[in-house]
Design a protein around this nucleic acid. Structure first.
Lengths: 339, 339
DNA sequence: CTGAAAGCGCTAACAT
DNA sequence: ATGTTAGCGCTTTCAG
């Protein structure tokens, strides 16, 4: 494999200066039409392509954007949470189309996070989920475009953010149940106290009940570890309360655990319990009955995230923006009309 | 934000030469213990970190490894195939631990793929799935370490490859069914003729039947589009043949489609049909009944892929290796013992 | 053991 | 319109 072609090779070949070559490559309008064409031809002929590293070194501007994930173990993160992969795919597509490279970084444990970060020479940053405040501060001190996806803490207001409207989502879910004749509607979530997302989803449930004049019963609120097994365990408790006809879950995975619990007890969904999930994960339409759920459009999320970042990258506009995505109801088979 | 610290800053600060600083940074044994310590201290104090771009420019060796995916649309690839995300997570973890950066690239349509590739200055390459031969040739001409994951075509033998043992997998599946008393075992796959993976899975099924003296019946072989809907459609045909008691599917997603079909007809799995899948995708344990399946360990796959690549990267050993991963049977609820 | 200096490929003044 | 040249930050001979 021969050495790669540089602008010097082209310049020598054409007996012109490297600068001229550089100009045509970068579309700087300083060269005659004729040389421009000759250069373009030579580029093809000699098989030239730009060395991005050299460009960076010269301009000080890298083309690398980093995506930070809130896990120190990427393999676990991606395998347990299909959301990451989907978001990544949607995000990366557009970011690359604009000529940026994407680096995927786990949440590294490091005192020198700030220093480490600086050494990366990033052009922009996007984070997914909750990080220790220190990390955000370090990112901020870099003074480069940055967008925070799915962070709900107070300090997020100082950054450009993107998230979905969680309370609207569970409001819709609850309302849908009510419209299907349900009054005894339970709610199942991970932890309303510690998870801001769960809390917001709870608030939507609560608001819907209130708006429809249905009393909120303390004993209709269930907690579980936010996993399939958590849902499975919770199903036992839910079954015990014979009055409950419907359940809104703060996550599909919980809903599926509950469905499993009912299946194992030979009870039927939606006959014995109407159930509605949240997220619309891939499995939601695979299970039987297919899960009615609140969909958060992850592809859309990825698209918006990249748009937010790219706009800021290209325009050097660092003003703070907050985008909220509206979820939608996906009607499938797990809710039964009663009365 | 102040300019980043360079080795010159450190050198000036310590009144030594940049070269010495470079030496200690790279562990070149040419500096006195004393200056070494002073440099190390200064690095901490001044907050220095290496500029990888400059290193590359100087040495010509980049630290970037690229992962190529066989889709021009990454968002679709990742969302439809959770496998990608999981593999990525597992792979990236180890590759980063060794200090390499990972670039994720879609299958770009380009006459100049070869040229484009060269401009990326990659240190190593890993591909996932099937690509046009031209692409592999271009990669090969780069003469850098490269590992092909899940490619079954003949030319793959010229590269280092990694795949699972598909025929063993379906052999195990079929054998398991036989051991559970089944004799009338159907097989469902995407397309045995065009997909080498499907073909191998078919071969394992066939071999198991033969070894156990069960006649292979043409009418027990079903074809479907390799999707959930494909499985759903195929379920109708399978139901019609009342003799069939069990089914081995070449993919979990197909199995789930079939399960859905049975559910919609008010038939029960595994009572009306025992079913076994292949892959162990995430949903496999979420559905009811949970799907018994052949697991291909994707985390393991990612780990081995990174090991293969890293070994070759660090040792400059470009000898060709072929690794085959053994799948395992995951016993769940979708197979019933009969007789 | 330490330093000077050339050079990696490109950009962007500054000259011509 | 085109050429010259000084960096960007680092590595690496080659001298001292």
């Amino acid at each position: 494999m021969s050495r790669k072609t540089t602008i010097y090779d082209i310049a020598r070949y054409l007996k012109i200066s490297p600068a001229s070559v550089s100009y045509v490559i970068n579309g700087v309008d300083k060269v005659s039409k004729e040389t421009k064409e000759r250069v373009l031809a030579a580029i093809k002929e000699l098989g030239y392509s730009k060395d991005t590293n050299a460009v960076y070194l010269s301009t000080g501007k890298s083309n690398t954007v980093a995506l930070f994930l809130p896990s120190d173990d990427l393999s676990i993160a991606f395998s347990q949470n299909p959301f990451y992969g989907e978001f990544l795919g949607s995000f990366i597509k557009r970011i690359q189309r604009k000529g940026f490279d994407l680096l995927i970084e786990p949440l590294i444990e490091s005192k020198d996070f700030s220093k480490w970060l600086r050494g990366k020479n990033l052009r922009g940053i996007i984070t997914l989920g909750k990080f220790p405040l220190d990390y955000f501060k370090a990112i901020k001190s870099l003074d480069i475009p940055c967008v925070l996806v799915d962070v709900y803490e107070d300090y997020a207001s100082e950054y450009t953010t993107l998230r979905i409207n969680d309370s609207d989502g569970s409001y819709m879910a609850t309302e849908y149940l009510i419209n299907n004749g349900h009054k005894d509607i339970a709610f199942l979530a991970g932890n309303i106290e510690t998870s801001e997302i769960d809390n917001r989803r709870y608030l939507g449930y609560k608001a819907a009940l209130k708006d429809y004049g249905i009393e909120l019963k303390e004993e209709y609120i269930f907690k579980a570890e936010a996993t399939f097994d958590g849902g499975l365990k919770a199903s036992k408790d839910i079954m015990e309360n014979k009055n409950i006809t419907a359940l809104v879950c703060a996550a599909d995975i919980l809903a599926m655990g509950v469905m499993k619990g009912y299946y194992l007890e030979n009870k039927r969904i939606p006959d014995d319990l109407s159930i509605i999930g949240f997220d619309d994960i891939n499995s939601a339409e695979l299970v039987s009955p297919a899960l009615t759920t609140i969909k958060q459009d992850i592809m859309e999320k990825g698209r918006l995230a990249s748009k937010l970042l790219i706009d800021s990258l290209l325009s050097n506009d660092t003003s703070i923006k907050h985008l909220v995505i509206q979820p939608t109801l996906i009607e499938r088979e797990s809710v039964k009309k009663i009365n």
